[in-house]
């Protein structure tokens, strides 16, 4: 004769429930972590070093001031400087091999907006928004890191703070970013 314990009070059931909850919560946590972790780059480009020796952002990301996309540096842009340097470490050798084979370096873009958001760098640069405002303190990063909470509220927040109420009509208009 089994003890008359209701099913919800059995230990095995309770342990299973806890386990399932843990897996769900943990899985969600890991998933969120991975979306926020910087992706693996073909060359772990040290932004901090390049910024440290005085390279301007727009030297490599040339399109920012004139177009929608800042762009990623071409192989020859890297090689322009690095062919004068001794390939001291593995990364520099990688650069050299890309340049010798005339291959493009498959950089993985990090700061990407979804397809339905039409972001344009040029007006932002014209308005004097610094790169760090959105891309974080690149001077302290090696590879570029995705910035958290780049959502619509964040855009609107900044648009509101930086503009007059008249301009905010345009800057909060759906058609400014979505079409």
């Amino acid at each position: 004769m089994k003890p008359n314990v209701p099913w919800w009070q059995r230990g095995s059931i309770r342990i299973s429930i806890v386990l399932v909850l843990l897996i769900l919560v943990g899985g969600a946590g890991v998933g969120i972590y991975y979306t926020q972790a910087p992706p693996e780059q073909p060359i772990p480009f040290p932004h901090n070093f390049h910024v440290g020796i005085g390279a301007e952002c727009m030297y490599c990301h040339t399109g920012a001031a004139t177009g929608p996309s800042a762009g990623l540096p071409t192989t020859n842009k890297c090689w322009g400087c690095h062919q004068q340097l001794e390939p001291r470490n593995e990364n520099l050798k990688l650069v050299a091999s890309f340049a010798e084979n005339e291959e493009s370096i498959p950089w993985v873009p990090v700061a990407l907006q979804p397809d339905f958001v039409k972001f344009n760098h040029q007006p932002h640069i014209t308005a004097g928004v610094s790169c760090e405002t959105c891309h974080g303190d690149v001077a302290s990063m090696t590879v570029a890191e995705p910035q958290p909470r780049h959502n619509m509220g964040w855009c609107l927040d900044c648009h509101q703070k930086m503009s007059t109420p008249e301009d905010f009509v345009r800057l909060s208009d759906c058609a400014t970013c979505h079409y």
Binding site: L72, T74, S104, P106, D115
Partner: peptide, 10 residues
């Protein structure tokens, strides 16, 4: 679209 891989030029 977050996961679209773009390629840079040579």
């Amino acid at each position: 679209s977050r996961y679209v891989v773009r390629q840079s030029y040579v």
